[in-house]
Design a protein around this nucleic acid. Structure first.
Lengths: 338, 338
DNA sequence: TTGTACGCGTTATCAA
DNA sequence: TTGATAACGCGTACAA
């Protein structure tokens, strides 16, 4: 089993087995019409030579590459990694490889990597894209989006999730509730969460002053910055609903820095239920989306598309649920009165 | 700029520009010898047709694919994502694509994805491999390992890092110090950290009873399980040094569950300085390795290898530093006396 | 400076 | 059931 210096090709195997290249190819791809005897002879030759397919050649010849391409801004966002883990599992189960490519939200990189995947992958999974990138792929390859974009997408019920979080805070007695929103221009999910928040506040007859909407940028740094602004307002909020957990953790940091206790002085709700929310001080109340499961579902949908099985639905919306931890409590009497 | 139904090839561009395929190819690859006029004509044709290279064909023809392949067990380990972020940055700077492939520590997947990368990538980065996987690639493609394996590797000074952590605890007055180790059989780094711990204890004249070495498996669950064993011992340790932050966070969980306060009842030191350590309750004292920088360095080393520049060193060892947070303190007088 | 011929390893097509 | 041949899109080597 020593490594051959020059890669073994179909032709080599064919020669060893005393058959043609096509026969070997047919064995590898499990073509049905074939005598058992030759099949076994080829199998032996395959093992003896240590043959491995050349994916480049396979892709060029027009057959599938057995590769699912993932396009995502960054891999060090917990949201992304948890989704990807789910997708990996599904891909493995289907015998497909999963290759992850980052775009850093850089349009040039997006285009470049997209064109790479266009010819290299059998299907593409867009995870948390900053815009509708589906069009880049045209008809060349099936695409599934994880997020609120695109023709085929997996997403959570953002509007209801935001409503649940907001009602939770209202139910505790909060009236001065602020929102750390995500970036509108880029991510549709952010807009849906904000809309859910505003609709719920309005339905409860609570006005939301404009300065109670701050941009947390979906990041810890952004959340910290925005929360500082909110908490140093003349009339600061008694509760904050953040558009994701990372910005909520930033807000937590800001509260600590300003000497505010959570939840006594400030209630805090996040969104996503990433793993870190259970180890923060205090553990964060948040709106859970089943990230791994969503990743798995997205990958399976894509695999169906690749296999030519038109899937039943092209938009799957997962329900959002509230996970109540220790970061929310009724407002203090002296601050809660508006 | 409408999407063509059939991909544009070199030949198409050549026809539009009124030149041969090779001229187009030469323009794309910035070959020097070429008249400015034809170069511009080809450029225009390139833009007009919306041509993009076919990486499969390029790889098959023997030229480089401009792809760095990364092989790693999982992407939802903070250690891995922080390293990968650094590597991404370096790859982008060099104009290379970075594709990440997971192995789930499954030998079959490892082999399969390795053979895929062998023909698909210009170079391979092994991040936290569970064993020496370099040999799979033979001479086919340059390989750099992030971790304590392989011919070319980037790693942290595990032995000294463990010694620093241990001395920190000894300096605070702890004598009963336990260690949550990683998996020996798989990861060399784990063995080096344990050796550093034991050597330091021995140098200080402190015996380490065998039950003070528990396997934390580098995971949160494993750390929690192992810490429970330690903390329910007849003579429990007053301090724990964990082989990585994830198992330290598990230990933190176990301590809370058992009603122990950190650091009053138990001091805790981790390893890695992943992002989460700064938001836990209490924030974790840990041994920092500069993960992003290490990822960046590894990628750059690999890029040098790909470009044919033999790099100055083939083993880079980064220093480890102690980050003191709130999880360590002197032992309580009534428990500290051995 | 530009063009021609060929090969990379695989699959599709069609004939035997 | 098997095999010969022609693509797939690009780069290298050489010739013009």
């Amino acid at each position: 089993m020593a490594e051959p210096l020059t890669p073994v090709t179909l032709a080599d195997v064919a020669q060893v087995a005393g058959v043609s290249k096509m026969t070997v190819s047919n064995v590898i791809n499990n073509k049905p019409s074939m005598s058992n005897e030759t099949r076994q002879r080829v199998q032996r030759a395959l093992e003896a030579t240590g043959y491995v397919v050349n994916p480049a050649a396979r892709a060029l010849a027009g057959r599938r590459s057995n590769l699912i391409g993932v396009l995502t801004p960054r891999v060090n966002w917990p949201f992304v990694t948890e989704v990807l883990h789910g997708a990996s599992v599904a891909a493995e189960a289907a015998g497909l490889n999963l290759g992850i490519f980052t775009t850093a939200n850089n349009p040039t990189l997006e285009r470049e990597r997209a064109t790479l995947l266009r010819t290299l992958a059998d299907g593409v999974l867009l995870v948390a894209p900053s815009a509708d990138e589906e069009h880049i792929f045209g008809q060349a390859v099936p695409v599934v989006t994880l997020g609120a974009h695109g023709q085929r997408s997996i997403q959570v019920d953002n509007h209801t999730g935001a409503a649940i979080a907001t009602r939770h805070l209202l139910g505790l007695g909060h009236r001065r509730i602020a929102h750390l929103r995500g970036k509108h221009s880029h991510i549709l999910d952010a807009a849906q969460r904000e809309a859910g928040f505003l609709a719920t506040m309005q339905a409860a007859g609570q006005a939301v002053p404009p300065e109670y909407l701050q941009d947390g940028e979906f990041s810890e740094e952004g959340g910290e910055r925005a929360a500082r602004v909110l908490l140093t307002l003349p009339e600061p909020p008694t509760a904050i609903f953040a558009a994701n957990d990372r910005s909520a953790i930033g807000a937590l940091r800001a509260a600590h820095a300003l000497g505010l206790r959570v939840p006594q002085d400030l209630s805090l709700v996040g969104f996503d239920d990433i793993h870190a929310t259970s180890v923060t001080d205090p553990p964060l109340t948040t709106v859970r989306q089943p990230l791994e499961k969503m990743g798995e579902t997205a990958a399976r949908l894509l695999i169906d598309l690749i296999r030519g099985t038109e899937p039943a639905q092209s938009h799957v919306i997962f329900p959002a649920t509230l996970v109540t931890r220790a970061s929310t409590a009724p407002p203090r009497a002296d601050r809660g009165s508006s």
